[in-house]
Design a protein around this nucleic acid. Structure first.
Lengths: 460, 460
DNA sequence: AAATTTGTCTATTTACATTTC
DNA sequence: GGAAATGTAAATAGACAAATT
C-alpha cells in the first residue's frame, strides 16, 4: 500500500494501475496514449520515478523500464537531477516529399533542389543507348559500383571538402538511404546518438523507428560545444554523433574550422562514430575541410550526389572508416541488395561529365537570385542564412510559435516547416520556420509565397 | 560460492567469470567469440541455464540475459525442456550478388534471372526521351508513384495469383528493400518471426541486423504444418511469418492450396503478420491464389517486378493491409525517401507494354530449356524442383554435407550454395545445395558447370 | 501420469552517479 | 559544499509454463 496519499500533491501525470497486462508495458502504453492524446503536452515535467513508484506501489525499476520504452520512441527525454520531460519532437506529419494533392499550395516546405539538367541527361542517355554494352546495364549489378564511377565520385566529393579514396566508398540510393543503412548497420535499439538541438527530421523518424535515442548536444555560438559533447559522451553514453557541418538543416549554420577539429578530436578520444552529412556541402564554392578529413577513421561521411548534380537519380556514397566498411556494406546489401547499374552509370556519367562544374555553378546562381528576392521581402533581422543556401531560417515575431505560424501560412496557401519538426528532446524549439527558396516551381510562385509570409509577419 | 564442483561433469561450455565488464555482457561476448572461433560448433548443446549459473555463481536470469543477446544475433536457438543449441545459420559469406573477381567461376550461386529485354528497353527509352515532359522525371518524385503505374502493377500481380487494389500498393526498390522495410516498420528488436526451416538468406541477415529472431516452423509434406504454426504462435510468441509459397527458396516447393488456406486462417485467428514473398510466383503460368487472397488484412505481400520483366530496374511493390499502410509507408520513406521517378516510369512502362506477356513467356521457355540440360546431367532421384523454376535443389549422396560440397565445387570452378546458408535455428540442415540454372551466362557455361557437379556426385 | 528439467518473463533489490538546491 | 533529489543499470528473486523422462 502507498504510504503517502498524493491527493494533496499535484502530480502532472496520474496513471492507472492495470490488473491484466504487465505493469511496465501498460504504463508505457498509457504514457504514449496520453502524449498522443494531448493530455500531456510537450515540455511537461513528469513526476519523479520514485514518486510514481510510490503512488502506484511498485518498484522504481518498473517505472524505469516503462519510461525506457517511451524514450526509445523519442517521446520522453530525461536527465539525472532535473527529471523527465515530454519531448517536443512529436512528428505527426513529417513527410518531406511533395504532396500530390497540394498543387494549390506554394510549396516551400520540403527541400527540393531546382536544377535543370534535362538537356544534358538526354544527350547522355542517347549516347549510352547506342553503345553495344548497353544491355549489361539492365541486368543485376554488383553491389560495389565500378572503379571509374568511384573515381568520378571522389573527384566531386573533393570539391565538397573531403579528399578520400575509392576503397572507402559504398554506393547508396540517396542520402536518406545512407542514413538508414548507417543507423541499422552500426547501431542497435537502445543506442544513443548526439545531434544538434534542431536537426534533420529524416534522422529523427529513422532513429525513432529503430529505437535509437537522439540526444541534443548543448551549443555555443550556434554549434555543438566541446563541453556539451564531452558531457553527452560521459553521462549519456552516446555512441555516435550526427552532424551537418555545411548549411546545417534547418538553421543554415556552417560550422567553424575549430568546431570541426574539436569534434574530430573528441570523436577520436571517446571512440565516437561521427555521421557527417555532407548533403549541402556542395552548395558552397569554397567549403571548409570536412570533419572526416580530421578523423577519417571515426567519421562516416555521406556524400549526396543527387542534390545538385543529378537530382532524382538517387545516388549517394557512404565513405566509411575501414573498420566499419564490412558492417556498412552488409547493411546496404540488406536494405538494397544492389543499385540499378543503369541509373548508377547514368548518374556517374553526369558527375564525370565536363558540364558538371557549370551545372553546379548554374544552380548556385539560381539559388542566389532567388535569395535576393527573399531578402527583398523578408526583414533582415529575422532572416538567417547566406544567399548560397537553398533554404532560409526565418525567426518569428513575439507571440508566434513555429507550429502556429506553419498552420496560418498553410491556410494562406503557403507551406513552410516549423521549428518543432526539427526539435530533439525536451528543449523548447525557438519560434522559427524553415523556408525552402528553391522549392517553388517558378520565381513568380516564390514571390507569391513571400508576399503571404511577409503579411503574416507584419500582422503581429 | 558454487555448491558443486563441476570438474567431474563434462560441460560443453565453460566460460570465464569476468571481473571488469558487466557479467551478462561479458558472457554474451565470450559466447559469440567461441562460436565464431569454432570452439563451439553448430548443433552443440549448451549447458542448462541453471547449471551455468551455479558454475559461475550467478543468478539464472543473468544467463538468460546473456543468451538473449546471442539469440537475437541468430547464434543460439533454445526450447523449453530440451535446452539451448548453437545455430547452424552462421553466415560468414552470404553475398548473393555476383562477385567481381570471380569471372573464372561458373556462377550458379546467386539467383539471377536471365531475360533479354534490351531491345524493348531501348525502344521505350527513345520514346520517353522524345516526350516533352521528360524533364519532370529527373526531379524528385512523390513517394507513392502515380495511378496508371499502380494499375499496371496490379494487372501483373493478378497474374501472380493476387488480385488487389491500388490503395494498398507502396513502391520499393526491389524485393530485398521491401523486406527490410517490412521488418523495420512492423517489427522491433526482440520480436520473433516464423520461417521455413530453410529460408531465403536475405531475411536471415536482415533479421540478424535488426535483432529479430527467426523461428523455424515444423513442416509436414515439405510445408509449414498447422500444428507447427500453432505451436510457434502459442509458445514462441511469433508476431509474424515469412513465407514464399511459390517455388520456395531454396527447396523449390510450391505450397498446396490447403496449406495456403491454413496459414490464412491461422494468421487471422492469432493476429499474425504474414509476409508473403511472391518473388517467384510469376514463374508459374498458372499459380495458385496467394495466401494474401485469403487473408488480405493479415498479409503483407511482396510483388517483385524486377525479376522476370524488368531485371536490374529495382522495382517491387509492397501490398499492405490497410491497418499497416502508414507504418509501412513511413518505413519505406525512412529507408528510401523516394524512388527515382525516371526508373519507376521506365519499369512501369515495360510492365504495361504489350510485349510483357511474351517477355515472361520467353523467360519461361529459356528456363525450361536450361532445366532440360540439368535433368540430363544430374540424377533424377537427387534433383528436386520443376522445370519452370530458375533454380533446383540438389540432394547430395551420403557422407557429403552441403558445406563440404560447396567448397569442393568451388575448387573445381563452380559456385553453388549449400543448405547451411539457408538454415534457420538448431536443426541440422539436409545435405543439399541450390543450383541456379539461369545464372550462367551461356548454355555452354551451364554445361561446363553441370559436368563438374556430376563428377563430384559420382565420386562418392 | 507425475516429477523433473529447462527456458521465459516481470518485478524487485541494490549500488551508483550526477544534478539540483 | 554537502545533502537531497533524481535517473540508470546490473543482478537477483520468484512465479510460470512447456518439454522431457
Amino acid at each position: 500500500m502507498p504510504i503517502n496519499s498524493f491527493e494533496n500533491y499535484p502530480m502532472s501525470w496520474k496513471p492507472q494501475k492495470p490488473t491484466d497486462k504487465p505493469l511496465y508495458f501498460a504504463l508505457a502504453d498509457q504514457l504514449e496514449a496520453d502524449i498522443a492524446g494531448g493530455v500531456l503536452l510537450p515540455g511537461t515535467k513528469l513526476p519523479p520515478y520514485r514518486e510514481l513508484a510510490d503512488y502506484l506501489d511498485v518498484n522504481v525499476s518498473t517505472i524505469t523500464r516503462a519510461f525506457k520504452v517511451c524514450k526509445q520512441k523519442g517521446l520522453l527525454s530525461g536527465t539525472i537531477g532535473s527529471g523527465t520531460f515530454v519531448s517536443y519532437d512529436t512528428t505527426p506529419d513529417n513527410c518531406m516529399t511533395r504532396r500530390t494533392d497540394s498543387s494549390f499550395l506554394v510549396e516551400m516546405g520540403p527541400i527540393f533542389p531546382r536544377s535543370n539538367t534535362t538537356e544534358d541527361v538526354i544527350c547522355m542517355l542517347k549516347k549510352m543507348i547506342a553503345e553495344p554494352d548497353f544491355g549489361k546495364l539492365l541486368q543485376y549489378g554488383n553491389s560495389e559500383g565500378n572503379a571509374w564511377q568511384k573515381e568520378a565520385a571522389i573527384k566531386l566529393i573533393r570539391k565538397a571538402g573531403y579528399d578520400t579514396t575509392a576503397d572507402r566508398l559504398i554506393p547508396a540510393t540517396g542520402g536518406q538511404n545512407a542514413i538508414a543503412a548507417i543507423l541499422t548497420g552500426l547501431f542497435r535499439t537502445g543506442d544513443r546518438i548526439g545531434t544538434d538541438p534542431l536537426t534533420y527530421p529524416g534522422v529523427k523518424t529513422t532513429a525513432k523507428m529503430l529505437g535509437i535515442e537522439l540526444i541534443p548536444i548543448q551549443q555555443e555560438n550556434d554549434e555543438i560545444s566541446e563541453a556539451g559533447l564531452l558531457h553527452a559522451c560521459k553521462n549519456e553514453h552516446i555512441k555516435g554523433l550526427y552532424i551537418m557541418p555545411d548549411y546545417q538543416n534547418p538553421t543554415t549554420h556552417t560550422m567553424s574550422l575549430s568546431g570541426r577539429k574539436m569534434i574530430a578530436k573528441t570523436a577520436k578520444e571517446n571512440n565516437l562514430i561521427v555521421i557527417e552529412d555532407g548533403a549541402h556541402s556542395m552548395l558552397n564554392a569554397n567549403p571548409l575541410p570536412a570533419v572526416a578529413s580530421f578523423a577519417p577513421e571515426h567519421t562516416v561521411y555521406i556524400a549526396s550526389l543527387s542534390k545538385t548534380v543529378a537530382p532524382g537519380f538517387r545516388l549517394a556514397y557512404v565513405i566509411s572508416p575501414l573498420q566499419y566498411k564490412s558492417l556498412l556494406s552488409d547493411a546496404l546489401y540488406n536494405i538494397n541488395l544492389s543499385l540499378s547499374p543503369f541509373l548508377t552509370e547514368l548518374a556517374s556519367r553526369m558527375i564525370a561529365s565536363e558540364s558538371v562544374d557549370s551545372i553546379i555553378e548554374e544552380h548556385r546562381q539560381l539559388t542566389k537570385n532567388r535569395n535576393r528576392l527573399v531578402n527583398h521581402y523578408l526583414p533582415k533581422h529575422l532572416l538567417i542564412g547566406p544567399d548560397e543556401c537553398i533554404f532560409r531560417w526565418l525567426l518569428l515575431p513575439e507571440n508566434y510559435t513555429g507550429k502556429e505560424f506553419e498552420k496560418l501560412a498553410q491556410q494562406a496557401g503557403v507551406q513552410v516547416y516549423a521549428s518543432e519538426r526539427f526539435a530533439v528532446g525536451k528543449a523548447k524549439p525557438p519560434a522559427a520556420v524553415r523556408i525552402v527558396v528553391t522549392a517553388p516551381e517558378t520565381m513568380d510562385e516564390l514571390r507569391t509565397g513571400l508576399e503571404v509570409l511577409k503579411k503574416l509577419i507584419s500582422n503581429k
